[in-house]
């Protein structure tokens, strides 16, 4: 983009870049540094020896996996229907779904609270998985439909003429072709579920069902506000996410910026 033929101008660009990026790195440095203050690595040992810790991770993983399965299956079916099949009043149904795109989860709290309590789902994973999936679907369907729209009709028609049913055409032609967008949807849903704070806060009260986003609060209580241990717990919960991102950089970048891919 910018021309930097001369070495000096290249150095200047590098310096500007470095100065601009420092504010983005400093909070992470402060986090690690703060977590090692006081008793040093002892903070980590104290956090890791809390018996509930693995439960928080297990709960987050369970919720994320269930949400991904629901979102992926429903998204792919609906996106194929919307993109390639005949549906009377299709655009009406589509807009019905898309209108929910801007729905903030906070407006669902009261009705869901009343409903989940009467269905005996309060304080179960379903109380988080169901609204989380429902909120992700409008967006993921939009993404997948736009992608499947780009697959030529002829491919599907040809398969049907060769005797394949719609189901087979979907399974053998559409699904393999949607892998890139499917991966982006999975990563997007994974992070949405893993990082969600409000739904677990309201619907999961028992520490044995809570998720990792509740950990900082849990540790504030556990270590009577010992900041160094709270920060150590933040590092421990952040680490899997950072590692996953470093391993799957492209997928994460595509999944998280998918919000503007319309």
């Amino acid at each position: 983009m910018l021309e930097s033929r001369r070495r000096s101008s290249r150095v200047i660009l590098q310096i500007i870049l470095t100065i601009l990026v420092i504010p983005f790195v400093l909070p992470l440095v402060a986090m690690v540094q703060g977590s090692l203050a006081g008793s040093g690595w002892g903070n980590y040992l104290a956090v890791l020896s809390v018996p509930e810790l693995p439960l928080f991770f297990r709960n987050s993983a369970l919720i994320a996996v269930a949400t991904i399965v629901i979102v992926y299956v429903f998204t792919m079916l609906a996106a194929f229907g919307f993109a390639k099949l005949h549906i009377r009043g299709k655009s009406f149904y589509f807009w019905l779904l898309i209108a929910a795109l801007t729905l903030p989860e906070v407006v669902l709290l009261t009705p869901l609270f009343a409903t989940m309590t009467s269905l005996n789902l309060y304080n179960t994973y379903w109380a988080v998985i169901l609204p989380l999936s429902a909120l992700q679907l409008p967006f993921t369907v939009l993404l997948a439909r736009n992608f499947i729209d780009g697959i030529p009709d002829e491919l599907i028609e040809a398969a049907r003429i060769d005797g394949a049913s719609t189901v087979l055409a979907f399974w053998h032609i559409v699904l393999p072709l949607t892998r890139p967008i499917g991966a982006a949807i999975i990563v997007f849903t994974l992070l949405g579920a893993w990082n969600d704070y409000l739904l677990p806060l309201v619907f999961l009260v028992d520490p044995s069902t809570q998720t990792i986003t509740q950990l900082p609060q849990f540790f504030v209580g556990q270590f009577s506000n010992d900041q160094t241990k709270v920060l150590a717990s933040a590092v421990i919960t952040a680490l899997p996410e950072v590692i996953a991102y470093l391993c799957l950089q492209r997928l994460f970048e595509r999944g998280l910026s998918a919000g503007a891919l319309k």
């Binding site: 983005f24 402060a30 990792i212 952040a238 994460f252």
Partner: peptide, 17 residues
């Protein structure tokens, strides 16, 4: 990576920091 790690991390985890 320095720019994108903040996107990946949960706000709930960074809040105490």
């Amino acid at each position: 990576v320095a720019l994108f790690v903040p996107v990946v991390l949960a706000p709930a985890i960074m809040a105490p920091v």
